[in-house]
């Protein structure tokens, strides 16, 4: 049965556009702040994971590649990857690396470190990315943050693609730090999941 398509069903296109723009001009990486802020705002003020459920471009992109294009082996996500320890552990690790990136940005802003025109893949490998920096009217830390943020986005997309091929199309969603964080916020707002037993599954709360 084919479900009626809405405009938000085509948001998968945002992922290749975002990564493509960052390849030519790193300052476009700042647009990625939307992918960080929107889910949090929806969770905090709306009390839902509507972003994950409906608007997440990466989720749609992985679903398209793994589902429709059949690039996924469609094997069950390993039990350890689905465990709470891994989910929350990855969230903590992600936060630590994110704050390290903010620290580097601060050092560049303070003039203690020069601008690093590279993208750090998997928090380890330095890929030259100097062609994407054409100077800026803003302070150098603005570009440093863009390089750091783009590194985060490229790394998480790469991990998402790897687990998509190896396991289920959207295995990334199981330990996505934004998903884990927004679910924690929603859980705090909604109370115990035991209350869900009274849910009729009408979908009214998701509208």
């Amino acid at each position: 049965m084919n479900r009626k398509k809405y405009w938000y069903d085509y948001l998968w296109i945002v992922t290749p556009i975002y990564l493509g723009l960052g390849f030519f001009n790193i300052l476009f990486a700042w647009l990625g702040m939307l992918f960080f802020c929107l889910p949090l705002l929806i969770a905090i003020f709306g009390g839902s994971k509507l972003y994950c459920n409906r608007y997440c471009d990466r989720g749609q992109f992985l679903g398209l590649l793994g589902g429709r294009l059949k690039l996924s082996r469609n094997r069950p996500t390993p039990r350890w990857m689905r465990s709470k320890a891994f989910r929350y552990g990855f969230l903590v690790f992600f936060f630590v690396m994110f704050f390290q990136m903010l620290w580097t940005t601060y050092l560049v802003g303070a003039g203690a470190q020069s601008l690093g025109q590279f993208v750090k893949l998997l928090w380890t490998f330095r890929l030259p990315w100097h062609w994407a920096y054409h100077g800026t009217l803003f302070a150098p830390w603005v570009a440093q943050y863009a390089f750091g943020f783009y590194s985060v986005m490229l790394t998480s997309t790469l991990i998402g693609l790897i687990v998509m091929v190896l396991f289920k199309p959207r295995s990334w969603c199981v330990f996505c730090p934004m998903g884990t964080m927004t679910q924690l916020i929603c859980r705090l707002r909604a109370g115990s999941p035991e209350a869900a037993k009274d849910c009729a599954g009408c979908g009214g709360c998701a509208k």
Partner: peptide, 10 residues
């Protein structure tokens, strides 16, 4: 099936 308040599917 629907997602209940961003916590769990039901």
């Amino acid at each position: 099936i629907a997602v209940w308040r961003g916590v769990t599917a039901q």
